[in-house]
Computed example of a mutant assay.
Amino acid sequence: MRIISVLGCALLLAGCTFKGVPDPALSARDAEYMALVPEAEFDPHFARYEIADPTREAPGTIVVETKERQLYLVLPNGRAMRYGVSVGDEAYGWTGTARIDRKAEWPAWNPPAEMVRRWPHVHAMQGGPMNPLGARALYLSDRGRDTLYRIHGTNEPEKIGQAVSSGCIRMRNIDVVDLYNRVPVGATVIVR
């Protein structure tokens, strides 16, 4: 009987710490495009959960903990949404504070000139399932100037949890749709 009580208490406490969150509703285009990008196996540690807020930032703030490979959207009442992300590899990572300047669904990709010099095979492309920006992009600015960094989806979901980007914060497409639906233009983003 004691074991059952202990297990019951553990389950109740777990519900207070981590809470699974249903996927957002998708448009027909989202469902069609996302079906073309195979969802990879990934560590459940990088799944989307509602948790107790570890950031101590104001509600509405996005905090990216690059070492943890986690993005937090601070919610009211001491809660946060936690999403697994890929971050910039050591040579290209960045930290600082920015604001979401604009948001786009299935955005076009125009790689910066520096990236094209490094990798001459990359080229601009229209939005769609094979575009590296994925389903959504949140464009980051610093005092009104484009940082060239984004929080965006990916066509390589198997890399979530790794340091592999050129500085952008990548999310699974379903997760970036969820975040996109929750945050307004003007939201603060802190990358640590």
Rank of each mutant, 00 (worst) to 15 (best):
residue 7 L to H: 00
residue 117 R to K: 15
residue 72 Y to N: 13
residue 2 R to F: 12
residue 151 I to T: 04
residue 191 V to C: 03
residue 70 Q to W: 14
residue 115 M to D: 10
residue 133 L to Y: 07
residue 157 P to R: 09
residue 157 P to W: 10
residue 137 A to C: 07
residue 104 A to C: 01
residue 147 T to I: 10
residue 180 Y to D: 09
residue 179 L to Y: 04
residue 30 D to S: 04
residue 43 D to M: 05
residue 114 E to Y: 13
residue 133 L to V: 10
residue 111 P to N: 07
residue 132 P to D: 06
residue 114 E to N: 11
residue 138 L to T: 01
residue 88 G to I: 10
residue 1 M to W: 02
residue 118 R to M: 14
residue 25 A to V: 14
residue 58 A to Q: 13
residue 103 K to R: 13
residue 189 V to S: 04
residue 121 H to S: 15
residue 157 P to F: 10
residue 21 V to D: 01
residue 52 A to D: 05
residue 98 A to F: 05
residue 186 G to L: 11
residue 110 N to R: 14
residue 138 L to H: 01
residue 73 L to H: 12
residue 21 V to R: 01
residue 79 R to S: 11
residue 181 N to M: 05
residue 66 T to M: 07
residue 126 Q to M: 07
residue 97 T to C: 04
residue 101 D to H: 10
residue 64 V to A: 04
residue 90 E to D: 14
residue 59 P to M: 09
residue 3 I to H: 02
residue 79 R to Y: 12
residue 177 V to G: 04
residue 71 L to D: 12
residue 182 R to D: 02
residue 130 M to Y: 03
residue 108 A to G: 12
residue 176 V to P: 03
residue 68 E to K: 15
residue 135 A to H: 02
residue 91 A to G: 09
residue 71 L to W: 11
residue 141 S to K: 06
residue 126 Q to E: 15
residue 46 F to P: 04
residue 66 T to H: 07
residue 152 H to P: 06
residue 39 E to Y: 00
residue 117 R to Q: 14
residue 62 I to V: 15
residue 39 E to N: 05
residue 101 D to Q: 12
residue 82 R to D: 02
residue 15 G to P: 02
residue 76 P to Y: 06
residue 2 R to L: 14
residue 6 V to I: 15
residue 69 R to H: 15
residue 3 I to D: 08
residue 40 A to P: 02
residue 8 G to V: 09
residue 143 R to H: 14
residue 145 R to D: 07
residue 26 L to P: 03
residue 91 A to T: 11
residue 183 V to Y: 00
residue 22 P to Q: 08
residue 107 P to V: 12
residue 139 Y to C: 02
residue 115 M to V: 15
residue 10 A to M: 13
residue 70 Q to I: 12
residue 30 D to C: 03
residue 4 I to L: 08
residue 47 A to Q: 06
residue 107 P to M: 11
residue 86 S to Y: 07
residue 31 A to M: 05
residue 35 A to M: 00
residue 188 T to Y: 00
residue 38 P to Q: 07
residue 157 P to D: 08
residue 101 D to W: 12
residue 108 A to D: 15
residue 89 D to H: 14
residue 83 Y to Q: 09
residue 55 T to V: 11
residue 40 A to D: 02
residue 139 Y to R: 12
residue 65 E to N: 15
residue 129 P to T: 02
residue 108 A to V: 03
residue 47 A to G: 06
residue 127 G to H: 09
residue 182 R to C: 03
residue 88 G to A: 09
residue 125 M to P: 03
residue 134 G to C: 06
residue 173 N to P: 06
residue 127 G to E: 08
residue 4 I to T: 03
residue 94 W to Q: 11
residue 175 D to T: 07
residue 156 E to S: 10
residue 97 T to F: 01
residue 169 I to N: 04
residue 138 L to Q: 01
residue 186 G to M: 05
residue 185 V to M: 02
residue 68 E to Y: 01
residue 132 P to Y: 03
residue 80 A to G: 12
residue 118 R to N: 05
residue 73 L to C: 09
